[in-house]
Amino acid sequence: MPLVTPIPGTPLPHGILNACTTVEDVEDTHELLGVEWLALGCCPVREWRDPCAIDDSPGDESPGEPPVKEFCRPEVEHAAPITLYAGAECGALGWSYDEAVAHAQATMELGEQQALEAAWWSRRLTADAVDLTPEAGPVSVAQGVAALEGCLAESYGGRGVLHVPAGAAALLGCCNLLREDPETGSLRTLAGNCAVIGAGYSAENTGPGGFPAPPGTAWLYITGPVHIRRGPLDTIPDRNASVNIRTNDRRVLVERTYVVGTTCTVCAILVEVCP
């Protein structure tokens, strides 16, 4: 049979490497080893009532200690590196080095978003999320989104990111939970939070602690903003070292390191995906 051009593909348009997140291409290898920062926006802003301006006589009772302003020490947050790779192998006689590199790079381009979603879900989202699932069990998707947005609003004053497995995404349209932002193309809730629809999330679909979702259910998460540092695409090995002289097979590997960070509280809830 004749050899033809491979069937091309396109990553899902609302995945983790799209409009809902900030993706920064970095060259500094030190940042790709992991980063840390002082959390911003997790400390509350409080109202101050001047006791001298309040006309509230305590009578014969002692007024007690005068009110004082509270200070919040910001937490140190961090993000660890995630390295993804794609490898290509074929007989050296039928495959040039450049063809092998091109095939591996195309594989990475199509699959890196899904792989990054799965890795970050299992490493970060499930690690220390607050589980909002009631004792009665999973809730409807609309109830789940409402609970998640309430949880985020109580701990963070800005826009956040809703993380949804692709297998549950269609249910978000049943109640008009999402709308497309005409300027950015992102999906947003009525509260203004962005939504990542992840194929890698569907592959994992685990709750806090890594426990799989029961049949007919899915886990949804919400976080603060998501910032992704992305390193260069490295090709390994060079042209001459790519051939195993014992088997006459050519192997080429491409890999890339990412550092994915978010801030403040991560909340999770189990929702029903079957009526």
Rank of each mutant, 00 (worst) to 15 (best):
T107M: 12
S202I: 05
T189M: 08
A153K: 14
T217A: 13
W121C: 04
A118R: 06
G87D: 10
L152D: 09
N193G: 09
G144K: 04
A142T: 07
E149W: 00
A100I: 04
T83M: 08
G150S: 12
H78Q: 08
P214S: 11
D128E: 13
A166R: 02
C194I: 05
T184P: 07
T126P: 01
C194E: 13
L177T: 00
P74I: 05
Y156T: 14
A100W: 01
G91N: 11
P215H: 03
A92V: 03
V101R: 05
L187C: 14
M108I: 01
E109M: 14
V101I: 06
S96P: 04
V161E: 07
E112R: 09
F211M: 14
V161Q: 08
V196Y: 05
L190E: 09
L116G: 03
G192F: 01
W120Q: 04
A104L: 08
P182Q: 06
P214R: 09
L132C: 00
G185F: 03
E183G: 08
G173P: 03
G185E: 01
E75W: 13
A106P: 04
G167I: 06
R123D: 07
G91E: 13
V141P: 10
S202F: 07
V164C: 03
A168L: 12
S140K: 04
A92F: 02
A169T: 02
R124L: 09
A169R: 05
G160C: 15
D98F: 12
V139N: 00
C174D: 13
T184K: 07
Y201E: 10
G210S: 12
A203Q: 13
E89T: 11
T189R: 07
S155K: 13
P215F: 05
A80S: 12
P214C: 11
I197Y: 09
Y97Q: 01
D98I: 13
S186N: 15
G144V: 02
S122R: 10
A102E: 13
A119C: 15
A147Q: 05
E117H: 02
G216V: 10
C174Y: 15
L116S: 03
C174A: 15
A153W: 11
P182R: 08
S202Y: 06
L110G: 09
W120G: 00
V161M: 07
H78L: 01
P165I: 04
G210R: 09
L172W: 02
G91W: 10
V196Q: 03
L148F: 01
A106K: 06
W120K: 05
V164I: 09
R123C: 06
A213N: 07
E135Y: 12
V130L: 14
I197H: 08
T189N: 07
C72F: 12
V130C: 13
C174F: 15
A80T: 15
Q143M: 11
F211I: 15
E75T: 15
E117V: 03
R73N: 03
